[in-house]
Design a protein around this nucleic acid. Structure first.
Lengths: 222, 222
DNA sequence: GACTCCATTACAGAAATCTGTATTGACATC
DNA sequence: GATGTCAATACAGATTTCTGTAATGGAGTC
């Protein structure tokens, strides 16, 4: 089992709850906790420098800004930063988020190892998740695997996300074309972008760009 | 002080926490709790029918669907439903939400009496809020009153919200014009709508409709 | 090589958006 | 009554969006 774990969660109650579960139900005792994102990062860096690395990070996604100045506002950045230094660290996200698309993004883009949804069965799920991740598995929350939405999930590649992002920022297709050309991203003709976006219209049953952006914002993809 | 209070909050820990605070710090003992929105509504109805009405509702905004079938998914509907029956009931919202615009909407549109942000100082804030509301005040969370954003808040009237809502659903201005005409809402020429939306562009510094909708979605106005 | 399949690109036209200017009418002030 | 203000409306044009069709070229199959 994991011998050293870092828990990043800003609510003290939840924080203590996680530690208690790891302690009592799984038998992990070497646990460090952090209530702030920056704090978690510093503890990680220290352990890494001291050659006593954490094997598992359990983190929330959203951190309140609080009084302390936070450079990292979200757990996503924390994961990226930590993974850039120690790519093999296992990561479990423990969050309120329950939108399938957003959770899907975490697995696809951030390559997290497990996800536990804050809820009524969080304790059981957390135990199963930690054990599964330790065995090298990717552990999806039951909300997702049981949900048919996950199966009919619309697959979005990097370009789709870029287009959605640019559109949501109000750039015209001409501007986007120029941007893509500058960054040497392959399909960069206006008509090709049109085609892509039209496909997104179909996928999300959107009437126009504005509707599309509203939908993906609601789904939490952006 | 309030003698009978209804607490609607789906997380058991938070639920118990609120009750404990009301008990220990304020001396309210006649408290009923509900973990589901529908449950809260039924308890309210029963009390109302029995002529032993609740004087205060403390409710979360978002409720998990859980296994139980819920007709009311959000606390907003719960507040609306309860207020339609007992308009003078005091309402305090206790939620994770910290976006000024959304909180502002709660006060402006739902006429809630107080708001407490789930966070590190929630206990103190809750006590102050309940006491303030009991004295007939409207109690805003310190996050908002201290925040300059609240002062520079953009004021949106009903029409603005309607327009944003329709636009986000992908309706064209022609369609919106027809809809408004049908509902006898006053400015319903396409150019007047254009003007309104242009003003929203200025207010939110949006480049176009798509950008505008993305911004207000992020702000939580929609 | 001939063929299909598929993604990119090009082009074109109808519809919608966005940005001006101008007119009207209601309302208040002097 | 004259004046100014403001919102609603009308109109116009330049730009952008959206939706077609068609041409091009690469990758794989026979």
């Amino acid at each position: 089992m994991f011998s050293k774990v870092l828990v990043a969660e800003d609510y003290e109650i939840a924080n203590q709850g996680i530690i208690k579960v790891l302690n009592d139900k799984i038998g992990i005792h070497n646990i460090e906790e952090a209530k702030y994102c920056d704090d978690a990062y510093l503890k990680f860096r220290k352990a890494h420098n001291d050659q006593e690395v954490f094997e598992l990070l359990i983190t929330d996604l959203s951190f309140r800004e609080d009084h302390k100045i936070q450079t990292r506002t979200s757990g996503i950045e924390l994961i990226k930063d930590i993974r850039s230094i120690q790519p093999d660290i296992k990561v479990i996200v423990y969050s309120q988020e329950d939108r399938p698309d957003k959770i899907n993004m975490l697995f696809e883009n951030l390559n997290i190892d497990g996800y536990v949804c804050k809820g009524q069965d969080a304790i059981q799920e957390l135990v199963a998740c930690v054990q599964g991740v330790y065995q090298g598995n990717t552990v999806w929350p039951p909300e997702i695997t049981n949900n048919s939405a996950a199966n009919t999930m619309i697959h979005l590649d990097d370009l789709d996300i870029i287009l959605l992002e640019e559109l949501s920022q109000g750039f015209t297709k001409k501007e986007i074309r120029i941007k893509l050309k500058k960054q040497n991203i392959s399909p960069n003709s206006e008509s090709a972008i049109d085609k892509r976006v039209s496909k997104l219209f179909d996928d999300f049953k959107a009437k126009n760009t504005t509707h599309l952006v509203a939908i993906v914002k609601d789904l939490g993809i952006l």
